[in-house]
Write a protein that binds this DNA or RNA. Structure first.
Length: 561
RNA sequence: CGGGGUGUAGCGCAGCCCGGUUAGCGCGCUUCGUUCGGGACGAAGAGGUCGGGAGUUCGAAUCUCCCCACCCCGACCA
């Protein structure tokens, strides 16, 4: 591809709307342009990369027996009503204004619709159906460039099986294919066990990439591979100290002491000698949650321990329930249910609020003073704590969800009556699995993991071109003639070549564009080296440069660095 | 949806608080000349509904009100 005839609008300046590195670089390298919030146009080189990603996905899906479909984006609303998902998706679902259609945010319904009446016998099963297509979701707040858009490319696959044993097989195939896909794309990722959520499925795993731009928080152990969403992650942390001698509770005047940190500073004690109280409303009744020191209540864990509706109490409610404001609340003489985090188990000589403003209590012995106290895992795992599985250090960070695999079960087949007959002529609902990959997210994550101060650093197989050929001064006829020959030779040898043949652009400009665009190898043709029959090749990743003889260039490029 | 911010030439910004020539600057763009290995130099040019609407005023980019778009934080994310 000749740059002189191509639309590759590179930018020297950083666009204001972009914040994260991948977004900035995609725009600066002329790969993508925004049309509206969460809606992007892929420019020629960007789309070339998208196609390479889709090709890899397609190959691996075909390798496990997947069959590619092309489903409509416009769906009759009626089908979505039958599964209750018009309501479930709510405002996320785009509605067409002048006809009863919706824009599909995913395709379970359509897969089930086509399976119905066509996959009628156990002999027709199993099937793996997939598509790589545009999906539409009316995201309330698109962000992070193409990572969360309102219109995006997704590969989604669906397995159709006669039973759950078959589903297990299809699920395992996808798990393996996904690992191959992400490995081939050169991504550093990890797999997180996720809860089955409201979908009624039995198992689900997410493929995540560590990134500050991520929307999920996960805990990950590099050593043993333990990984979990922060909402459910567990860790090993220091419990409350158990002193051999328990003091009696005593009141301390603590004017203007609100936080645990202030309390520790005021009394010159350690955080682990304190118990923090948080009040929640559980199905309309107050409950006190006691945490060790500054530990944060994990509201997801709290929710699953308690069941029902849980919310934190409003400031006005606190006074009414406890007689004190936040900062002075404690478990002693609290009139309602109290639960505590496991780390506090049997702690003694603890300090906590006195349920009287500006007073705290010392000498609390939980076993003695609160004999009916129940203990649960209620805390949020923190960075640097120990892995629950292997004991090495746990890292907590933000991550981007690249893909997920999900055992759906019979939710959709039952809602839409998608049944088959077994060997005995007995009718059963088809068992489904659903498996998604965000195509643009692979793109963005690759850049997040492969860039430097000059630009993107591509590598095979996603690199849009193998070689960036730079003719430094194309007005020099020797340079121009040599470049033309190299360009033809490289292409006929099977390389994909981006040829900077612009004759009105200075050398420095071309070098910087080449570094920004980030092809793995640059071939630089200039007068000086050419005089001696040489050209220069450069390794984009390391910056290493070599001057080589023109007549040995083709051999050298077999193994350039 | 709550909070914060921005909107002035293709891009990045100044001007606005304190209203008053012809709305500036850098980059980019056009033409000519020079230059040609790390974002060149000179000269001459083109390019603007100052996000939109209404209002105040002799006069609005600037003040007031309404609306829209975009960005960030949060909520949300089967």
């Amino acid at each position: 591809m000749r740059l002189s005839k191509s639309f590759v609008p590179t930018l020297k300046e950083v666009p204001t709307e972009a914040v994260i590195p991948s977004h900035i670089l995609m725009i600066r390298a002329g790969l993508v342009r925004q049309l509206s919030a969460g809606i992007y146009s892929w420019l020629p080189i960007g789309y070339k990369i998208i196609r390479k990603i889709m090709d890899i996905i397609r190959e691996e899906m075909n390798a496990i027996g997947g069959q590619e479909f092309h489903f409509p984006a416009l769906n009759p609303k009626e089908i979505w009503e039958q599964t209750g998902r018009v309501e479930a998706f709510g405002d996320i679902l785009f509605h067409i204004k002048n006809r009863e259609y919706v824009l599909a945010p995913t395709h379970e319904e359509i897969v089930a619709y086509h399976a119905k009446g066509s996959l009628v016998s156990y002999k027709d099963l199993p099937q793996i159906w997939y598509q790589i297509q545009t999906k539409f979701r009316n995201e309330p707040r698109p962000r992070s460039g193409v990572i969360r858009g309102r219109q995006f490319l997704m590969k989604d696959a669906y397995t159709l099986d006669r039973d759950f044993a078959g589903l297990d097989v299809g699920y395992a195939l996808h798990e393996k294919a996904y690992k191959t896909i992400f490995n081939r794309c050169g991504l550093k990722y990890f797999v997180v066990g996720a809860s089955s959520g409201a979908m009624g499925g039995s198992k689900s795993e997410e493929f995540m990439v560590k990134s500050d731009a991520g929307e999920d928080t996960v805990a990950h152990c590099e050593k043993c591979g333990y990984a979990a969403n922060a909402e459910v992650a567990q860790s090993v942390a220091e419990p409350a100290k158990k002193h051999t001698e328990s003091k009696q509770p005593y009141e301390i005047s603590t004017p203007d002491v609100k936080s645990i940190d202030e309390l520790c500073a005021f009394l010159k004690i350690h955080e682990h000698e304190t118990a923090k109280s948080r009040i929640y409303m559980h199905d309309g009744k107050p409950i006190l949650v006691l945490m060790l020191g500054n530990d944060e209540v994990n509201e997801t864990k709290l929710g699953s321990v308690l069941g029902g509706n849980v919310r934190s109490a409003h400031p006005e409610e606190l006074k009414e329930i406890t007689g004190a404001d936040a900062g002075s609340i404690g478990p002693i003489d609290f009139k309602h249910r109290i639960i505590a985090d496991n780390l506090l188990k049997d702690g003694n000589n603890l300090f906590s609020g006195a349920n009287k403003n500006d007073y705290h209590l010392g000498g609390i012995d939980l076993k003695r003073d609160l004999p009916t106290l129940e203990y649960f895992d209620l805390r949020t795992a923190e960075n640097g704590e120990k892995c629950i599985r292997c004991g090495s250090t746990l890292e907590v960070f933000k991550a981007i969800e690249l893909g997920h695999i999900f055992k759906l079960g019979t939710k959709y087949s039952e809602a839409l009556g998608v049944n088959y007959l077994d060997e005995n002529g007995k009718e059963h609902p088809i068992v489904m699995g659903s498996y998604g990959i965000g195509v643009e997210r692979i793109f963005a994550c690759f850049i997040e993991q492969n860039y430097d101060s000059k630009g993107i650093v591509w590598k095979e197989p996603l690199s849009p071109f193998d070689i960036h050929l730079i003719g430094l001064n194309m007005k020099n006829s020797e340079v121009a003639k040599t470049c033309e020959k190299i360009y033809i030779d490289l292409i006929s040898d099977g390389y994909e070549v981006l040829f900077d043949d612009r004759n009105d652009v200075s050398a420095g400009f071309k070098f910087n564009d080449a570094d920004l665009l980030g092809m793995p190898v640059q071939v630089i043709v200039g007068e000086k080296n050419l005089k001696d029959g040489n050209v220069e090749i450069k390794n984009r990743r390391t910056g290493e440069k070599k001057v080589i003889a023109l007549n040995s260039m083709m051999d050298q490029l077999q193994e350039p660095f």
